[in-house]
Nucleic acid binder design. Structure first.
Lengths: 196, 196
DNA sequence: CGACAAAGTGAACATTATGTTCTAAAGTGA
DNA sequence: TCACTTTAGAACATAATGTTCACTTTGTCG
């Protein structure tokens, strides 16, 4: 299933670096981290780091790619199994909130005022891509002149992002199911407006 | 009306620095700029820069504070003049899109993939604050248990942000009036859902 | 006007991070 | 086992940051 990398030293090193980055993000947020911090924590040589990644941002996106792939997978499965046309958005968002709940520690660290602006940007983009697939599939081919679907996508994804960050911060006393239901209640009218 | 700063050298220097930052942002985005770049462009001494601002981020937020204040002002006036309860949200957002249109060059520079993550974060926050004032005023005191108003705020502000960035990029062939109308059409159901 | 306080200059400096390069040593797959 | 790849670790060049200081210029206010 997974792609063969054929040298386990590579996998090991990359895993160590990703894990180190993760734990450091929880501690001090992303922007405050130096490459030195990462390789110290990972116990990996400096040259080794640069043999694998261009810089710390590169390492970060390589990690988020895992998240992105996982979410895309869930989305794809949901598209196959669920039938009702307005259950599809649910299936995707539910998985997203569940994922956030799982990585809540990292999320909370990223939400901090200044630190983590880049991560937020990347997450926002991931959400945009996910929402786009769902919305475009739902709206279908009949593009509406009064509400361009891409505008709806950006609106809904932005809303999802805002809501997610608030929820991840723990400011809402809600379960993943509840916040997901709330999201759908807020977002569905917008999607409907686009498809009208 | 304006606060007296009493020494025009200070104003002059700060204006020069802000203008330099602005023009540099249009060129290379925010993150790629160094303090050296700024003081070269502004033709201001290094020590002088640090006498006024802690770092380039400090300079940036001091500039955005102007924008924030202007928008808040417009919002306050709109609250006084407009009557209909669902025209208030319009009044605020219309001004926002007009502002974006005016500074479209800077906005477009900020939207670039990687550079400008911090600015985006700050803008997002400004929008959240503006939306909060409007939504909380509209929802009134009767807080709803099924839809916490702060959740609605974050959702709507996130949507506004996403839509604004898309529009600022020029990907929508719309006037400020049109995109504003679209925003309201997408957002109003969410606000209504909260007040129900 | 003119004195004086406030602001700006520019260079030097300590510090910190970045990304590259090189050689020896260790791990891996066939 | 052996050829090949990866890693360690240190040394380096470069670049940016923020501070300090002695000195000059500029506005403000009496």
């Amino acid at each position: 299933m997974a792609v063969r990398k054929s040298d386990r030293r590579v996998q090991r090193t990359q895993e160590l670096l990703r894990a180190a980055l993760l734990s450091l993000i929880e501690q001090k947020g992303f922007e405050a981290i130096s490459v030195q911090n990462i390789i110290d924590r990972a116990n990996v040589g400096r040259a080794t780091f640069y043999a694998h990644f261009d810089n710390k941002e590169d390492l970060l996106v390589s990690g988020l790619d895992g998240l992105r792939a996982a979410l895309k997978d869930h989305q794809r499965q949901a598209h196959l199994h669920r039938g009702g046309s307005d259950e599809r958005l649910l299936a995707f968002s539910h998985e997203m909130f569940a994922h956030i709940a799982e990585y809540r520690d990292v999320f909370r660290a990223m939400v901090g005022k200044r630190s983590g602006a880049l991560i937020q940007q990347l997450l926002h983009k991931i959400m945009v891509d996910l929402v786009r697939d769902d919305v475009k599939a739902m709206v279908g081919q009949r593009e509406n002149k009064s509400a361009p679907s891409e505008a709806v996508v950006q609106f809904v994804a932005g809303g999802l992002f805002g809501l997610s960050m608030l929820w991840a911060e723990g400011k809402l006393r809600m379960s993943a199911e509840e916040v997901n239901a709330l999201f759908r209640r807020l977002a569905m009218p917008a999607v409907t407006a686009a498809a009208r």
